[in-house]
Write a protein that binds this DNA or RNA. Structure first.
Lengths: 223, 223
DNA sequence: CAGCGGCTGTCAGGCCGCTGTCAGGTCGAA
DNA sequence: TTCGACCTGACAGCGGCCTGACAGCCGCTG
């Protein structure tokens, strides 16, 4: 899960980043309004945490522009204390949830998780694709009901494929989601992870479309 | 367990805080109505102890506002002696329990515990996970029926893991609950607590998922 | 006040699971 | 056949995690 944190207060931003990283999100932060708008418009995020008071370009304006451009990722807006008008405006502008400052990090994380789940079209902590099931609470993976032990990195890969199980994910997008552009790994790192996962899951779960990317097999023929 | 004490009499407030801290609550106090409303609206508490006579904003008004905003944490209202109208109003406003002043600290603590248990969806004071049992009344821990002596910090760790035993708790979340954001400890402090607990409980009780966090083992294989 | 003991955070050291890289091998497409 | 995308086993380094030791703090006791 890739999340963009737009917050100009560096202390809050780093706290947010730490909390979200603990929740297995991959976090990028941005303190400038113009840059935030550009990032949200061009990059693929699973969630955006958006502060309203920003230099150069206001958060509400950013959000409206994204929506009018068809960007539909879930956006969690941070509002100032008691600023009721901001809430209304934020929801009008297309926010999916809001959280008044100051807030507890656990609550933010909980709402972030809920938004990501909701955007994946699932209200439950269980996500399924074919014979594979992810439990986002326990961070466990089961295959045909049998538990499979996976590492944190492997889980993040599966989790992302699960969220976008309706399409094929190019290797570049996966690399970007697992690591980020800044500390880029070679493409082979991803292939290594895939190989290890296949050894655990068997074939017929993690599919490849040569030249396009990876995906989760929707159904597993034969029992 | 995090509790907010709203009381403008500083002496009563400090007594309350001392008693609740003895009962392993993490206590925050507040003497001002406006501030209390704000805190309860934005922070996550497991319990609020609310005095009705407050400067700037009346306790009942605060409570009504919280409820209308969807804040559903348990609230224990302190009423003046014999003011039965306040009781009715308090319950109408959404109080979960009330206690007439003056009261015995033991009774307050008992009711506080009961409220927290009820809100956690458990009617009993016993909470179990695998071979481990917590008695939230007596703050004792037993392993396979054998009492185990744990410190206050260790108990709070176990208590939090017990409350969320359906999922994996990241180290950051545990640190935040044990200490709070303000006085942060190094991650190693948590690891030290875990090591000491394991020495007391043996292996197979407090589990680690590398890269994810800690959890209570649901079952203990072999007797 | 001095001594003592329990509690707990920090430090240093070490283990080992995780993971990126490398050097090949395999397979599909043109 | 050739090329490049992809797979795979081996391996080494890193870092998450564990642990014993130590010191500071605090309450208790004499």
């Amino acid at each position: 899960m890739r999340v963009l944190v737009v917050e100009d207060d560096t202390r809050i931003a780093s706290d947010l980043a730490a909390a979200l990283e603990n929740a297995a999100f991959r976090v990028e932060t941005c303190a400038d309004g113009e840059e935030a708008w550009f990032l949200g418009d061009t990059e693929e995020y699973d969630l955006v945490v958006l502060d309203l008071g920003l230099p150069r370009l206001d958060g509400l304006t950013i959000l409206k522009r994204w929506r009018s451009n068809g960007r539909d990722m879930p956006v969690l807006v941070l509002t100032a204390r008691g600023a009721w008008t901001e809430r209304v405006e934020g929801i009008d502008a297309g926010a999916d949830d809001y959280l008044p400052k100051p807030f507890r990090m656990e609550e933010l994380v909980a709402r972030a998780r809920a938004l990501v789940r909701r955007s994946a079209g699932r209200g439950s902590a269980q996500q399924e694709a074919g014979d594979l099931t992810l439990d986002t609470n326990r961070m466990t993976v089961t295959l045909r009901g049998v538990p499979v032990s996976v590492t944190a990195l492997e889980y993040r890969l599966l989790s992302y494929l699960m969220l976008h199980r309706d399409r094929i994910i190019p290797p570049g997008e996966l690399l970007e989601h697992l690591y980020g552009d800044e500390d880029a790994r070679e493409a082979n790192a991803l292939e290594a992870v895939v190989t290890r996962l296949r050894r655990k899951l068997g074939s017929g779960v993690l599919g490849t479309r040569r030249g396009f990317g990876y995906f989760l097999e929707p159904v597993e023929p034969e029992g």
